[in-house]
Design a protein around this nucleic acid. Sequence first.
RNA 1: GGGCCCGUGGGGUAGCUUGGUAUCCUUGUAGCUUCGGGAGCUAUUGACUCCGGUUCAAAUCCGGGCGGGCCCA
Length: 465
Amino acid sequence: MEKDTNFNEWYNDIVEKAGLSDKRYPIKGMNVWTPYGWKIMRNIDEYIRRELDATGHDEVCFPLLIPETEFKKEKEHIKGFDSEVYWVTHAGLNELDVRLVVRPTSETAMYPMFSLWIRSHTDLPLKIYHLVNTFRYETKQTRSFIRVREIHFFESHTCHVTEEDAQKQVEEDFLILERLMKDLCIPYSLLTRTEWDKFPGAYYTVGLDTAMPNGRMLQIGSIHHYRTNFSIPYNITYEDADGEHMYVHQTTYGMSERLVGALIGVHGDDKGLVLPPPVAPIQAVIIPILSKGNIDAVTAAAKNVEKMLRDAGIRVKLDDRDERPGSKFFEWEIKGVPLRLEIGMKDIEKNVVTFVRRDNGGKGTVSLQDATDGVHLILRSIRKDMYDKAWEKQRSNVTTITSLDDLPEKTLRFGWCGSEECGHKFEDENDLKLLGTPYIPEEFDGKCIICGKPTDKVAYASRSM
RNA sequence: GGGCCCGUGGGGUAGCUUGGUAUCCUUGUAGCUUCGGGAGCUAUUGACUCCGGUUCAAAUCCGGGCGGGCCCA
């Protein structure tokens, strides 16, 4: 399994061998979450809940089906999703009068309800989210966690009195993102999408992208400012202090199971998955090293360490299967368990536990008494090192270019005058996707790489995943 | 959107050209034995993607569906 020379095959191989997903389910793009993969997703979901709850969002759950009549209210939105929605056209033996859309995203499900819920400025801001499955009929090649037809994601939807308040929400979303990505050790860039690539119906969209080992950028989430683009067709209004009826300003924020794809791509190596401790289903695995005559002593010591760690809140597993240690090492390495602990007679005699870090192969011992503190310390250090290493890779993947000859397989940074004409020309002639312009402006003094006009604007592009 | 390739036990494969008996590795199961980097021995379970066509006979030839993979736009 070679990650860097053959990323696509490596990726498929890891997904299968680490037991993340079973793609033999007989519908294209709809895979089965197997236990280990689902535990990772659940851990990520818990972090998302924690962050959103802590910032005043309330979790809700909206229905899967949306009446065609509601779905069609916002014109741009329909144009964007029309070709990729699933329809429910029958109920039992009867054809439905009003067909039902299987949600591709929940704006059109939520907003009719928002219109009922919101009456006064004191009802605002309204900040809600749900964690659900959505369905999009992908026509391109599907790929586990990265391009699927049934998408597991969270979407938060907020309503505000003014555009400025909505803008503040976007800023808060970035802080949530920063904290979340610290736990997942995933680096990202914030790029304002081009006009032709923004979310259908949005005022603007910020894409959250992370670099994959093949130099391509993977979009892991997005944040949208809608202004009143949806509140007008869905009639979401509030009465202000003066008795005037005003349309709310809205934002949304969403991230999906692509985060799992990002974990695989960003951290994995030739031996398999490498999971950041905060989301790893098993943070430390204990392998007892048995041999004739010491089975009872070693097993007892291993169980003792297991209990210590478990009582301290560490997700630990004692692998006491009747297999040879070597084959266990291989298996847990493929599954990306951050820390391996070995206990054999040699360790017991010295009163220590041997540890091996998955992220960098570092090996050492911790004393038996302080095993809990020692493991906590190592896990924290792994998280930090993984985070720093991933960011370094993300930064080094960006190359500033001044010519379109010999384009490297990296994230490209270059001058762009900002015109749609140049943008399209750039994409069409180079088989690249214009990811957008930095949300946080960057100093630049150069020329548009397409038309040559002087510009202080910079843009990013890469081949699409 | 276009092109190419593929579908045989749970996974990976041989067999297909030239139609007739399905190969090997791995995994699973049971037992013995072993244990600081994928151990060994014995026994054993398990497969031709689906529909249609040609034929005495189809994993094999033909058509279509479904599914999978790669490349290009």
